[in-house]
Design a protein around this nucleic acid. Sequence first.
DNA 1: CATGAATGAGAGTTCATTCAT
DNA 2: GATGAATGAACTCTCATTCAT
Lengths: 197, 197, 197, 197
Amino acid sequence: MGEKSIQKKKYILETARKVFVEKGFKKVTMKDIVEACGISRGGLYLYFDSTSQIFMEVMRLETQEADDVFSDSIKEDATAADILILFLQEQKKELLRRKDTLTQAIYEFYFENDLPKKDNILKKQFDSAVKIIEKLIEAGVENGEFYCEDCKGTARNIMFVLEGLKISSQTIGMKAETVDREISFILSGLGVEMEEE
Amino acid sequence: MGEKSIQKKKYILETARKVFVEKGFKKVTMKDIVEACGISRGGLYLYFDSTSQIFMEVMRLETQEADDVFSDSIKEDATAADILILFLQEQKKELLRRKDTLTQAIYEFYFENDLPKKDNILKKQFDSAVKIIEKLIEAGVENGEFYCEDCKGTARNIMFVLEGLKISSQTIGMKAETVDREISFILSGLGVEMEEE
Amino acid sequence: MGEKSIQKKKYILETARKVFVEKGFKKVTMKDIVEACGISRGGLYLYFDSTSQIFMEVMRLETQEADDVFSDSIKEDATAADILILFLQEQKKELLRRKDTLTQAIYEFYFENDLPKKDNILKKQFDSAVKIIEKLIEAGVENGEFYCEDCKGTARNIMFVLEGLKISSQTIGMKAETVDREISFILSGLGVEMEEE
Amino acid sequence: MGEKSIQKKKYILETARKVFVEKGFKKVTMKDIVEACGISRGGLYLYFDSTSQIFMEVMRLETQEADDVFSDSIKEDATAADILILFLQEQKKELLRRKDTLTQAIYEFYFENDLPKKDNILKKQFDSAVKIIEKLIEAGVENGEFYCEDCKGTARNIMFVLEGLKISSQTIGMKAETVDREISFILSGLGVEMEEE
DNA sequence: CATGAATGAGAGTTCATTCAT
DNA sequence: GATGAATGAACTCTCATTCAT
């Protein structure tokens, strides 16, 4: 597969991503993607065999980029609290975009695919985020920004709350204030008081 | 609609529920329900027009029964902590049953139906659960069982954690210990130490 | 399945038979049969799942009728030689009809389906024909019409010659004289001289 | 067309032959041959336009080689009976190989192509074989090995029996004993008794 | 000559929905 | 009320064939 093919594959994945964002996972057919890409029916099959395969590759790209974003934030010199707050604000933005993200599609995808743990990107991301938050909190505790007795437990709790907010935003809707309130609650548990925006 | 019709409708809903538990929401077709019920294709249409409509009625039944269950627990004379722990244990059981509940189907249903808030049973349930937990915590604080500065915030936090656990159990899997750990974390935030089971 | 369905099923099989006669087995698609029957695409699937299934049922019908035809000839009071000659003439007619029979479709069908022996109608028919011919020859020998040292071997030989003529008529073509010549050869082996037609 | 092209054409035909042996004729697609050859889609079209064309050339090669094989047997100095028996044994071997020959593909090919007689290789081969067998029998009769009243008829009969065995081996299966029995029958008709192998 | 990406027709199959009985 | 046959749209997937490179 030459350079051109790689470009086209990338183009298909980017276009398909938009389709998944708009329609979720299950509802998307090969035909939808074909039409969105403006290519022929058979043409798509040259690159991908199924919507599942396409979606997994879309997620893989997404994950790579997400990791980059994360390390970007960490590069800057900032206190632990700054970084944690920044992270939570990023999550908030994503939460409130709701219909513009892959979130729903990802959930749907995992609903119908019981992937073995080793392949479960979602789990990897979750565990990795817990670890990063734990480190952050530990750093914050050390330099007196945070107060916390169970750093790992708190990190896990934060991630489950974020998951709860994420799914709730998809099912029962989510207002900015609700997210702010939860972020404040988390931070106040660490002994940090947020100022009103 | 006569008595007989009501019975039949109920029979269809109960049977359809099993189908939704097994397959989620989206994958279920009218044909699936027809076959599970052992009735004719046209027969089903006399009572329901779509899987969405059936599912909404299944959820309505479910909610009624869920409320009953809740009030059952409250009837007993028990301390606030007892009741809260009981509630959390119930949630844990449901979480771990995973594939035997409507959870996934409900999520899928809400993904593709942006129901106006007034019809959003999920939201009603969530808000109502927050209120009940808030009352419980307040009661617990009053009689010295709990320590808590922001009862409403804590109640909300608990519910979001539970949501987070619920969706995680569907997507990345969930072990009993993970749930226990989260429950312990919640309770320790209220100044209650759980004993090992 | 009601009386009406049985009628329709029969109608489909009869119509499909014509399609198989015309096109053989492999080339025939579900769409071909749908169009020949003048029914809807989905309609055909109510009755049959595949062309293979349809073809097997067509063959089953064919076999039943073929058996009837055979017993018809036997009913009449005739000498062994008469019956054998009659049988060979029937075979000749079928051979020369060539494109108006299921022969080719049957061969194609067996080419791609290695049916276990018990389900192999072709084998059953072959073996049964051998037995009948053997009896005929034995009867003919007893009443002095035939001369034959190995009745079973001769019966088998006759059937293989007929098979050879059948496949040859499909592949290299077959003239009436060629068949007549073979029939004469067979009969002269039994000590019977055919008169010219 | 240069030397290189001729080599490539030959390579394609040899590879395609294997595909036809394995799959018959109808099931084989240009794609199958492209993949088996490890060449490009477009590349195949430079040499051949269709599977039919490829198959005809495969058969042409096959026939040439088959003739060679035949003349090989004849070269040796042997009695007529020896040669006839050798020929029948060769046919037997081929019959029993069944799935390793082009037989089925050839039948399928002729089923869907009504080739005019002059192009019908199968017919040519058949007629030529009849002639050779006739000569053999005549020679055998002359030197007292065989007894036969109608050499041409017998030769034709032998060939039709062989055709019958061949098609039967493809459709209803064939055991070695069955072939042996038929060969013995043929030879005993010529006054030759086979010994058990 | 050779490649292989691209097209588009067409086959199989499934279901929501209707309607005569 | 109830049945289930029938329709037709929609989807998946495969290939013969072409064509720019």
